[in-house]
């Protein structure tokens, strides 16, 4: 086992038990390691259990079989060392932008003046200056997700878990947010585990992409997507290297997406 790994997922199985109906094996023998400050994408068709794996990492679901270690310790419960950003933002609708960003800092018992300052810094970082007193219901989807990202970054988790964070946004906003996330990640390096079903997004953002199979989810392949050039400008999309990686991953994912589709029909 790699000593440098910050997250070790070792032969994890997970069975989903719906309130009615038969239990479904969602994850089968998943093993994966994530290094410190690495940006890892979990790529797979919908229903492959990639979000489930993220929730296990977050400690929201109990690990039933296998083990998950974060910095050497088994995951038992949610904790502020692992911040999470959800697809549908999960902002507290009764709190303003500032109130949402402050929440984690309040729970960490940071002194008032310090947390006010820190919250403002992260609101500025995601470009929401001037919207501090708005409620989530008054914001666009992109602004809500920026708030959610600021909220999670503000309490400084070592690990950032992202569950299709841009999946609910329109195409233009999504592309802007991807670039912005890369910028933020370069300024405040963290380990990121990023769930997505979008191949381009995975190649663009991640250092490595773990491709998952259709249900029951397994790790099918791990593909290195770290490019030589440092700055990831939008020109990347047209580069030969990028296009080839996307094709390579598409081939891996397509089979699984088809399988997932067939299962739905059957």
């Amino acid at each position: 086992m790699d000593d440098a790994a910050q997250i070790i997922i070792d032969k994890v199985n997970h069975t989903y038990r719906p309130p009615r109906g038969r239990p479904v094996l969602a994850l089968a023998d998943v093993s994966l390691e994530v290094r410190p400050r690495e940006f890892l994408a979990l790529l797979g068709p919908s229903g492959c259990g990639k979000s489930t794996l993220l929730y296990l990492l977050g400690g929201f679901l109990p690990t039933e079989a296998g083990r998950i270690l974060v910095e050497g310790k088994p995951v038992a419960a949610p904790g502020p060392d692992r911040g999470i950003v959800f697809q549908h933002f999960a902002l507290f609708p009764w709190k303003t932008v500032r109130g949402n960003v402050l929440y984690g800092l309040e729970r960490q018992r940071m002194p008032r003046s310090e947390r006010e300052q820190r919250a403002q810094a992260f609101i500025d970082l995601v470009g929401l200056k001037g919207f501090e007193d708005s409620y989530p219901s008054q914001l666009s989807g992109g602004m809500r997700q920026r708030t959610a990202i600021a909220r999670t970054l503000a309490f400084d988790p070592n690990i950032l878990l992202m569950d299709e964070p841009f999946g609910a946004l329109d195409a233009q906003t999504r592309s802007l947010m991807q670039t912005e996330l890369l910028g933020i990640w370069q300024r405040t390096p963290k380990t990121v585990v990023f769930v997505t079903h979008d191949v381009q997004e995975a190649v663009y953002l991640a250092d490595r992409v773990a491709v998952m199979s259709a249900r029951p989810g397994r790790i099918k392949a791990i593909v290195d997507t770290k490019f030589k050039f440092g700055a990831r400008d939008p020109g990347v999309f047209r580069s030969k290297e990028f296009v080839e990686k996307v094709d390579e991953l598409w081939d891996l994912v397509r089979v699984e997406a088809l399988k997932a589709q067939e299962e739905k029909v059957a």
Binding site: F60, P78, P80, R82, I84, A90, F92, Y103, R107, R151
Partner: peptide
């Protein structure tokens, strides 16, 4: 009350009781 809000609060360091007050009540 939405599961993801409960999870969010817990992941930001809220205890179970605290989460009742901060998420379930509102």
């Amino acid at each position: 009350s939405e599961q993801v809000l409960v999870w969010s609060a817990r992941s930001m360091g809220a205890s179970r009781m605290r989460m009742m007050w901060d998420v379930v009540m509102p």
